[in-house]
Computed example of a mutant assay.
Amino acid sequence: IGTPDYMAPEQVSGRRGDVRTDIYSLGVILYEMLTGHLPHSGPNVYNVMRAKTAEDPQPPSAFKPDLDPHLEEIILHAIERSPRDRYASAAEMLADLRDPSRVVPKGRAQNLHPRSLTLQRARRTAGYVLFFTSLIGIFVFLIWLANRYPASPTPPRRSYRGQVR
């Protein structure tokens, strides 16, 4: 299948790749060559694979501030999460790499929103706390309602001979 650090998100999701999958891998290699870092990192392979399908990478300029914005645009175009947003062919990417100045920066680096694992865990924990607090509130409300409007007393039952039980 491939080395997880260089796998495209569609491969991580179990789908077949095409030429754009290879373009993604090439984009990761360029990213790493220019910054010394991988676009997605984590404590283990599973976190890296999850990040590829759910998180945006750090812009290369976060690691190398003097990076040419045209080159950064090429790299980010190559490692787009969705294959339809990447270069359609290696020839198209090669043309941009030969003359990066012709690439119009589209602001990909400014539109990235990398999320830290800590922030995601905090949001998930807050969601659980809210859910269980709501559940407890519903039970308290139902108990209050039951005490406020008690059930009416049942009339005494008579036996088959007319005697009250």
Rank of each mutant, 00 (worst) to 15 (best):
L119S: 14
D96V: 06
R115W: 09
E72W: 03
T125C: 08
S116W: 00
Q120N: 07
V129Q: 09
H70N: 11
E73S: 01
L130N: 05
E92D: 14
K106A: 15
W144E: 12
V104C: 03
A88F: 10
A90K: 03
A88R: 10
R84T: 13
G127D: 04
R98S: 14
E73M: 01
S134I: 06
A95L: 06
F141H: 03
P59L: 03
T53C: 13
L71F: 00
K52E: 00
F131Y: 13
A78W: 07
S89Q: 02
L142M: 15
L94F: 14
L112W: 05
G137H: 06
A95S: 11
D66A: 14
H77I: 04
S82V: 15
L119D: 15
E80R: 13
R81M: 12
H77Q: 12
F131M: 09
H70C: 06
D56M: 10
V103N: 00
E80L: 05
K52W: 01
P60I: 00
F132D: 03
A51N: 08
D99G: 02
L130F: 10
S116P: 08
H70V: 05
A91K: 12
P105G: 01
A126C: 01
V104I: 15
L119Y: 12
A78V: 04
R102Y: 01
R123V: 11
S134P: 01
R50K: 10
R86F: 05
W144C: 11
R115I: 10
E72H: 01
I74E: 09
P69Q: 03
A88Q: 12
R50H: 13
F132G: 10
I143E: 08
P57E: 03
P65C: 03
L76Q: 03
D96T: 06
S61P: 04
P100F: 04
E55I: 06
A62E: 08
E55S: 11
Q120W: 08
F131P: 06
P65W: 07
I136C: 14
L119F: 14
L76E: 00
F131E: 10
D56V: 04
V129P: 07
L135W: 10
A95K: 12
Q120F: 04
P83L: 10
W144M: 10
R98D: 05
L119E: 15
D85R: 09
R98M: 09
S101V: 03
F141K: 00
V129D: 07
P57V: 02
T118V: 15
K52A: 07
R108N: 04
R81C: 04
N111L: 11
L130C: 10
A90F: 06
E73A: 02
L119V: 10
I138P: 01
